[in-house]
Design a protein around this nucleic acid. Structure first.
Lengths: 94, 94
DNA sequence: TTTCTATTTTGATAATTATCTAAGTAGATA
DNA sequence: TATCTACTTAGATAATTATCAAAATAGAAA
């Protein structure tokens, strides 16, 4: 079920952008929400899904809630993709 | 838009299973459909989405329609995942 | 301890996606 | 050319997901 959660989480562009935002440093929810033309409530909903998929963790500081990227759950996805035989190996005739 | 299509396509377990089925050899639609407790129409719908995402190609032979895996489109997804910094690099303290 | 700030949760609605049945199509076979 | 086989497409419905506005919460600040 883990991989299904991961893939469902990253199938949405808003959630992918959130992950991109957290790539270099953690950010509070408000700062994340400010990057979208969506209400804080909606962004919070996306954060919840990402949290459930274990792609981010949260940490409270003052009354901000900081989110951190946890990219380690991608390992399973990578394994699956590689199991299908990737790398353009059938394309080396050029 | 390409990556969005790819990720949306593989976010569904039925479609991932189809890709798994095509991993080693191409198969006709009927044989694929037989692997699911779904109507041929529904499986055809999933095949259409995979085709649109360029994850499979089709080829007619007699009156069978064979589907082939095209895993090369995963390259973009892999790049994105790696750009987030993968490999459990923050986990090497064990 | 009241109020303010940052954010989440709830409840409702809209939008999208998956599924089915029935009808259509392309090509092989009789 | 009529029919059969292997599918797809269309149309309808159910299920899921994304969104918002309004209310709730947790902790900081006054």
């Amino acid at each position: 079920m883990a991989m299904s959660d991961t893939l469902k989480a990253i199938s949405d562009p808003v959630r992918r952008k959130i992950l991109n935002l957290l790539k270099d440093e953690s950010k509070p929810a408000g700062e994340i929400a400010a990057q979208f033309a969506l209400t804080p409530a909606t962004v919070s909903y996306h954060l919840k899904l990402l949290k459930q998929a274990n792609l981010i963790t949260e940490r409270r500081e003052k009354n901000f809630i900081y989110y951190d990227l946890n990219a380690s759950v991608f390992e399973e996805v990578l394994s699956w993709i590689y199991s299908l035989g990737i790398g353009g190996e059938s394309d080396d005739k050029k």
